[in-house]
Every structure is written in structure tokens, then in C-alpha cells.
């Protein structure tokens, strides 16, 4: 089951705040994501896309309902399990959050070293490879301050992908990129899905990306209002 369905969400509800201010953001969401697929989440601002993504990525505790990530129930998961699962994910945030004192290459290495000290040569090799994939072969030793916004975002993408994650969760990753590199990143994710079975869930408004998606899920007011599988091209 978890082999083919790395993410299974059932009867998920989520609230923010307490007492008077308590407000429900997710209402009875059910979602099964197929391995190797590229799913996009759409919907107006405030519809709960980010909340759903953080719940699926064990960045936020599940309050009600069930999220099974890579075969593990997240409702009631402890910190150790959360940390172990996070190491199998790749996050791409809207803000790149690169460490300003680390070079591009060192930032990408951080995506590998979370798995513990392994062969150093191999780590550097993998990090260089990931940076070349996002077209930054000639910027490896630059500090973030000396990279453009798009370049920084591509470093963040390389950092998310270098550890061969099982699942990639991305929140508007192309917002800060020009159209060309945005499309490049998404095509790469799609290729990884085909080659390694990497599953991607991505929040986006970009129409051209929608064309590449296997499935488009639309949220409104915390509910799934449309769930539309695209025929493979």
C-alpha cells in the first residue's frame, strides 16, 4: 500500500488558534497520492494549500484524521519519527532560506549530511552533480549574496533533490524564477518521478506547469472542490 501510495490523507481536519479565535482551515480532506506522480495543488489564497502541505510533510502536528506518509501514521507521531521521515523528503520553499555563510555547494551538501557522515568524496560528487542539473556548475563556490534570486532558488532545489528524496513537497517553487528556469525545475522533477519514482506535490498557479501535472487538486475554503487527473501525454 505505501509502496504505491506514499501519501494517504483520510478525514483530515485542522484548526488554528484556540478559544474564540479558533478557526478551521482544513475540512475533511481525503487524498491518495500515487508514487512517481506530479500532483499540483491549486486554489485561491487562504484556501489551505500550504497548511495541507505542512501536514503532509510532518512540519505540523496532525490534530484530527489520518496522514500516512511513507507507511507511517503522522497522527501522534513523535519527534524522532518526524525527523526520520523529514530526512526522506525534499522541501522547496517559496523563500530559498539558504545559509548566507555557506557557498552554493556547501548549502547543497547540507541536504546530504543530514544522513550522517558518509564518504566525503561521494557527497561532494553528488552535490556538484545536483548543482549542474540546475545549471549552476559555474557558481558552486559562490555565497548566496553573490547569486541572483533565481540562482538561489535553484540552489534550494538542488539541496532538496540531492538526497534522493522519496517525496518532494514544493510551495510555489517557481514564483521567484523566470519562466524558463521555472519550467526547467518542474521538468526535472517530472523526470525524477519517472526515473526514480520520486513523488512530487506542488502548490502552483503557473498554467504551463499545470500542463506537466499528472493530477490537479483544487482547494477552496479548506475543502477539495475539484480533483482532476490528466491523461498522460
Amino acid at each position: 500500500m505505501s509502496e504505491d501510495t506514499p501519501i494517504a490523507v483520510t478525514g483530515l481536519n485542522h484548526w488554528f488558534g484556540t478559544g474564540e479565535a479558533r478557526k478551521q482551515a482544513i475540512f475533511d480532506v481525503n487524498l491518495q497520492v500515487k508514487r512517481g506522480s506530479l500532483t499540483t495543488l491549486m486554489g485561491p489564497s487562504g484556501s489551505g494549500k500550504t497548511t495541507l502541505l505542512t501536514l503532509m510533510g510532518c512540519l505540523r502536528d496532525v490534530q484530527d484524521g489520518s496522514v500516512i506518509l511513507l507507511g507511517h501514521e503522522l497522527n501522534g507521531a513523535d519527534r524522532t519519527l518526524n525527523e526520520a521521515l523529514r530526512r526522506r523528503l525534499g522541501f522547496i520553499f517559496q523563500a530559498h532560506n539558504l545559509h548566507d555563510s555557506l557557498t552554493a555547494l556547501q548549502n547543497v551538501l547540507m541536504g546530504l549530511q543530514v544522513h550522517g557522515p558518509t564518504d566525503r568524496q561521494a557527497q561532494y560528487g553528488a552535490a556538484r552533480h545536483a548543482l549542474s542539473l540546475v545549471g549552476l556548475a559555474d557558481r558552486m563556490d559562490y555565497l548566496p549574496a553573490n547569486l541572483s534570486g533565481g540562482q538561489k532558488q535553484r540552489v534550494a532545489v538542488a539541496r532538496a533533490l540531492v538526497g534522493n528524496p522519496d517525496v518532494v513537497l514544493a510551495d510555489e517553487p517557481t514564483a521567484a524564477l523566470d519562466r524558463e528556469s521555472g519550467m526547467g525545475v518542474v521538468r526535472m522533477l517530472k523526470k525524477l518521478g519517472a526515473a526514480r519514482g520520486t513523488t512530487t506535490v506542488m502548490v502552483t498557479h503557473d498554467n504551463r506547469i499545470l500542463e506537466l501535472a499528472d493530477r490537479i487538486v483544487t482547494l477552496e475554503d479548506g475543502r477539495i472542490v475539484r480533483d482532476h487527473a490528466q491523461p498522460p501525454d
Binding site: G57, L59, R79, E83, A84, L85, R86, R87, R88, L89, F91, F93, A95, N97, L98, H99, D100, M110, G111, V114
Partner: peptide, 16 residues
């Protein structure tokens, strides 16, 4: 000064 970078490391699964 590095809270969001540290948070990113947490998201990547780095332990306390």
C-alpha cells in the same frame, strides 16, 4: 539572525 535557516535545517530532518 538565522532562525529561518535553522528552521529549514529542521525541516530537512536535522535533530536537536
Amino acid at each position: 539572525d538565522h532562525l529561518s535557516e535553522y528552521a529549514t535545517f529542521k525541516a530537512m530532518g536535522y535533530p536537536q
